[in-house]
Write a protein that binds this DNA or RNA. Structure first.
Lengths: 173, 173
DNA sequence: GACCTCATTGAGCATATTGTCCACTCATTT
DNA sequence: AAATGAGTGGACAATATGCTCAATGAGGTC
């Protein structure tokens, strides 16, 4: 139905987003609880177009959700740390990841290049509380050693908008 | 107006969220474009209550937004890397952070414990493209050296829900 | 006990939005 | 020339929203 797209860049290829998509995402990022109708007015397009673009981006996985973004800091979790895990090679990543996923304070886990390592982003209520969380991580079967760095400040909070603004200017290569 | 709250845990303190707030966040996380009225039906509370809870959480900064979550991967940025920056002590963090913020592929920057270091999360279209991004980072004035690890897989994608579910069970200490 | 504050409820009302049709245009593809 | 798909503009009923109001109940204070 909407697997491949020809409008826009001419060449038939796996399209990402076009300038209108980008404007729509930017608009919604700025005032997220805008309705479809209001968006169409701001962008000077028909309501159905906005509807279609949104549906398409969701279907394609460009937009993964509209969920409420919760700030762990406001919940009392003021400490953020990045924990590098050295794991036992034999056991594989999955069982370790599964156990890490069971710890609420573990917000994110990546497997990374290097000697069987993983990188986890964790939060805690305080530095003392961080020790508790790290202890839980060390207790995970398969974890050999951990080393953590604490995030003191976050001069650039997570964002995707600059990327969204950039993409439509760089037609798929 | 709603600076301090006494309902719930009895003790007067900086409250975070209560079980109803948590249920509301979970509900919206699951089906984000639900309306207020629909939420009130699902949670068996009055519409005004949902309205009030949402407003309160937004006002308190617990909910920082409802923006569309964009997947860099779907935009063609399949490579994620964590870059540790060693920066020149003299210049300070801010000018470096400002320049990093100007690079769209830099999604996030933290200052971390250690010898004047920063940690940046970057994405790129390919490993070759990552080189281009890292070159841009190295070119930033004040950056002495970088070392990067590539995220091969993400067994636990970023999430906050487990935390949200946990908080109301653990009254502020 | 009397009083007060505040979250919550349930109701009502005018307005705005949604979901879903339709016919039409336009550019591109075949 | 015909077909395709995106976009438009309009219409419709059904629904949701913002807003107000009075009443209730729980928790505090005096």
């Amino acid at each position: 139905m909407l697997n491949e797209v020809r409008s826009g860049w001419g060449i038939l290829c796996t399209m990402t987003i076009d300038p209108l998509d980008a404007r729509l995402v930017e608009l919604l990022a700025g005032e997220p609880r805008l309705g479809v109708l209001e968006c169409s007015r701001r962008l000077n397009v028909a309501r159905g177009t906005v509807q279609a673009r949104l549906d398409r981006m969701v279907a394609r996985g460009v937009i993964t959700g509209f969920g409420p973004e919760v700030d762990p800091g406001a919940l009392g979790y003021d400490v953020t740390a990045f924990v590098t895990l050295e794991i036992r090679q034999v056991s594989g990543h999955e069982p370790v990841a599964d156990q890490l996923a069971a710890i609420p304070e573990v917000l994110e886990v990546h497997t990374i290049t290097g000697s069987g390592d993983m990188l986890a982003r964790v939060v805690a209520r305080s530095n003392a509380d961080l020790q508790r969380v790290i202890d839980q991580i060390v207790d995970v079967r398969g974890v050999v050693r951990t080393s953590s760095v604490i995030a003191l400040d976050t001069p650039v909070p997570y964002r995707v908008l600059p990327l969204v603004a950039e993409v439509p200017r760089q037609p798929p290569h």
